[in-house]
Design a protein around this nucleic acid. Sequence first.
DNA 1: AAATTACGTCAATAGTACTGACATAATTTC
DNA 2: GAAATTATGTCAGTACTATTGACGTAATTT
Lengths: 177, 177
Amino acid sequence: MTHRSPAAGKPIKTAITDEDGIDFAIIELFFFAYRDFTSDPDQILADYGFGRAHHRVLHFVNRRPGLTVAELLDVLKITKQSLARVLKQLIDTDHIVQLQGPRDRRQRELYPTAKGRALALALARPQSRRIRAALEDSGASERPLIERFLEAMVNPELRAQIDIVPANMSGKSHGDH
Amino acid sequence: MTHRSPAAGKPIKTAITDEDGIDFAIIELFFFAYRDFTSDPDQILADYGFGRAHHRVLHFVNRRPGLTVAELLDVLKITKQSLARVLKQLIDTDHIVQLQGPRDRRQRELYPTAKGRALALALARPQSRRIRAALEDSGASERPLIERFLEAMVNPELRAQIDIVPANMSGKSHGDH
DNA sequence: AAATTACGTCAATAGTACTGACATAATTTC
DNA sequence: GAAATTATGTCAGTACTATTGACGTAATTT
């Protein structure tokens, strides 16, 4: 089986290019960029026995303290069962606490503890450093443009999730969407 | 267990912000953007019984026809065993063929078939559309800037992988790195 | 009182990844 | 030519993240 099987098609020896107007350059850059962007926190998480799923939960609980389980599922686009294990571990290790919802007592509002806040910051630090360096490389004044591009990459109907974020205003000023 | 366990820390009710100079806005945008960017091909892949791993292999074999297994492992940053199953499936379904290396007969050069090329294009099409739309939203002239930013997000020592790509020159002209 | 909602949990399964070990063929080195 | 190294393939075992389906409980709504 080291060679081609009898019914196999002929090998194409030319590289795929921008034929059909496909933007392979940016597709590939996006893959590499995200691969390395997530590699920073992955190393820290390994020390805790956590994975990427824990990071995402921790991030959003810190960003929107008091969100409910249902809201978290909606943001992460995963199922209840997938969240269960990860959330349980974060609660057992005292990174997150849940409080009974004030209006609806069935709901669990999720909050970070001091420990959970500290870990979220530690995980975000190398990512933020990478972003700052990349912004400087491409001209520091270009931040709003990068933000607009990334936001435009998100499905329009899901962009509402972004703007839920309470207070990330430090010169954003993109009130035009 | 619906409430806090006795030893649990106190809930923090304020949202994490740009304290410590952490760029949460872009961290989060990058997560959302990549989530939706990969959701397009994921739907197509499901029809074939393939996953994201198949997509990545297919992409790079089309981008660098004739690359060897070792080179592919290096680009994907996964292990031989992880690649094995995915690559075998792509070969069995006649999307990829392997030829004996001309210089070194131990090597397997990987090439796409017409079928594999077609699938790679089909997977890239919605992603490219998304990128084009996002570029238009942020001003069509900003493409080189977005490219520079994404490239700067990649680990410097790994940037060599990007430039291996044979011919994606359609007005790139960023020969300054 | 009945239906619905929010959440939790159990069981079974899948996809992607890992480490470690071992085998084979081809090339390189001594 | 024999020995070491290299490129690849494969086997066994494990882990993490995710899935679907089913069921249970408490609280709210109808």
